[in-house]
Design a protein around this nucleic acid. Structure first.
Lengths: 341, 341
DNA sequence: ATGAAAGCGCTAACAT
DNA sequence: ATGTTAGCGCTTTCAT
């Protein structure tokens, strides 16, 4: 079979340089054990013939591929594309390629991708997904895996890098309370089968209310299934909440940008002014939060830091050093904008 | 060396099933030449032992990897992440994985990635980049390549899928003229060394003016180098244009969302109302165009169609059918919003 | 219908 | 310092 790009193989190079394949291999991998003169000659032949190593052969031999898999629910969501951007950037510097696996929130796709990744001998997997619902006997633990932004169920011992979602939910809610809000709506998504962030954010919301002696009310929690629902879905939810007219409202916490944007559009449509009538806080702080009018006060989850910690952790694991802790927390920051003035 | 996931190899399976590796391979690949009984037995053993094929071995043997490379300037730009989303989705259905290569507009990174892709024996490359400035002798043509959204220089015979950027630039400008604009600013980015879209869009802008007997004025063309400049860069450009105060203005064509958003912010800052004082048209029509106030009239470039045509074309080439035409044009559509009311 | 064996390009253990 | 060679897991040709 052909060499990639129809170029020369290590054997061709060896022949031209008048050495053995072993020597070429040693030079290629800086293993030492050759004279400076030989090195020069081999290097020159390599260069002159445009040698490109056959990674398949190398992977077959060494069982590593210099490739990392990234599983995420939706690359077209600005939060995840930002995460992917930083992950790619860091991995590139370390000589790794990135296989993108868009799970589209489908378990079957996620499982299938994981099998593919194993088959391709990736050196590790970064997973912005809870890994919930995998078959009992699935060989998840035969490879370094780090979860981002999701905490897999306790039965798994997979390390993860997350924000303190409980604290973030509390922080967002307290911000509104500090601004004088008392009737605060929580607009959130709902993901099955995980110890998920949203849950923690909702807990933070509830505790913030309680600590400030504001009675919680089930009617003030709007939930929609699925991580990646478009804002229109949330807009419908909030519209119907407003239509009933039974519930006074002066604040909204959206646990995703889609949730907050949906709420914003519903409020505007209803003639409610933000922030004068209703104040709004959201999560993720992507460019979207800057573009709306008013700009959205948003919990910045520091995607670059999440990416950095996750990559560091994964590379450590690949190097053979198991992580000390299971859960790694990255700080967040509330960025105040006009929506909660 | 180990099998991926420490699972069984084809030899283990053969042994357990009491057949030869050749037979297992034949069953795996539905090649025929075995009894129904044998098939059942092998299939059962495969299943029972959680066999996962070693793609490295297969790739080494067959010189194909069921993997496609995608080179793009910035995965965190909503237009490209949308493109990536659709490409991934279609390729997944066809059994391919996607290697993401974020060139960050750096030629060195692009070249390095291309070498890596060759080494990994990818079956083809999709490239949202002009492939300009590659070394003369670079083995670009040893692999199926399709360009998206960029037309590589004439010296290359690489097929591409694009919009008619000239027509789109003209369309955007004519839309403003039809709305009564006569003093129209073009805010655009500038990419070196290519027969680039922006160029065509600018040409369309100029021709639209000419055909409507509006004199073109070099002062009304604001250019910024680089495909991926943030909106702030364009905002600065437009601010200084407005600050001079020498130029009456009633319309702006931004050839990217960043350009238009920068312009919008600069106009607002200057106290100019959109669309009453100045009307605005942009390109790309991502969610961003919906979020600003007012919503932006935008040229929808149909990223899903671009992705679809590009993937189809590439898969055809991989199947051994060279494309009939070099340039494949995908329609665009102007979506009117409040910014040009 | 099935098996034996060669070989894809590379690395590493074992010569020398 | 350098060469020889086995073998990673797979497909395929050639036997039978």
């Amino acid at each position: 079979m052909q060499q990639p790009g129809n170029g020369p193989s290590i054997r061709d190079i060896a022949q031209i340089a008048g050495v053995s394949t072993a020597t070429v291999s040693r030079v290629l991998n800086h293993k030492g054990g050759y004279s400076a003169e030989t090195e020069q000659r081999v290097l020159a032949v390599l260069e002159a013939n445009g040698y490109i190593g056959n990674m398949a052969a190398k992977t077959l031999r060494e069982a590593k591929s210099k490739t990392i898999g990234l599983i995420l629910p939706n690359i077209d969501n600005p939060f995840y594309s930002c995460l992917a951007y930083h992950i790619e950037s860091m991995l590139y510097e370390k000589g790794y390629s990135l296989l993108i696996c868009n799970s589209a929130e489908r378990l079957d796709k996620e499982v299938a991708y994981f099998r593919t990744l194993i088959g391709k001998h990736v050196d590790g997997v970064l997973c912005a997904s809870p890994l919930a619902g995998f078959p009992e006997n699935f060989p998840l633990h035969t490879m370094p895996v780090v979860c981002i932004d999701r905490i897999p169920g306790e039965e798994r011992t997979i390390p993860c890098v997350v924000n303190d979602d409980y604290a973030a939910g509390k922080c967002a809610t307290e911000h509104l309370i500090r601004k004088g809000c008392r009737k605060i709506l929580l607009v959130t998504f709902h993901v099955q089968g995980q110890t998920a962030g949203w849950n923690q954010r909702a807990r933070g919301y509830l505790d913030a209310l309680e600590e400030n002696h504001i009675p919680a009310d089930r009617n003030y929690i709007l939930e929609r299934p699925g991580r990646e629902a478009p804002s229109q879905e949330f807009e419908i939810l909030v519209r119907s909440f407003l239509r009933e007219g039974r519930f006074p409202l002066d604040g909204v916490v959206g646990t995703s940008e889609a949730a907050a944007i949906g709420a914003l559009f519903a409020l505007k449509d209803r003639g409610l002014r933000v922030p004068q009538d209703v104040k709004l806080v959201t999560f993720d702080n992507t460019l979207q939060s800057v573009l709306t009018q008013p700009g959205l006060t948003s919990i910045d989850r520091k995607p670059q830091l999440l990416a950095q910690r996750a990559v560091e952790l994964l590379l450590e694991m690949i190097a053979g050093n198991p992580p000390q802790r299971r859960i790694h927390t990255v700080p967040f920051e509330l960025v105040a904008r006009d929506s909660s003035l």
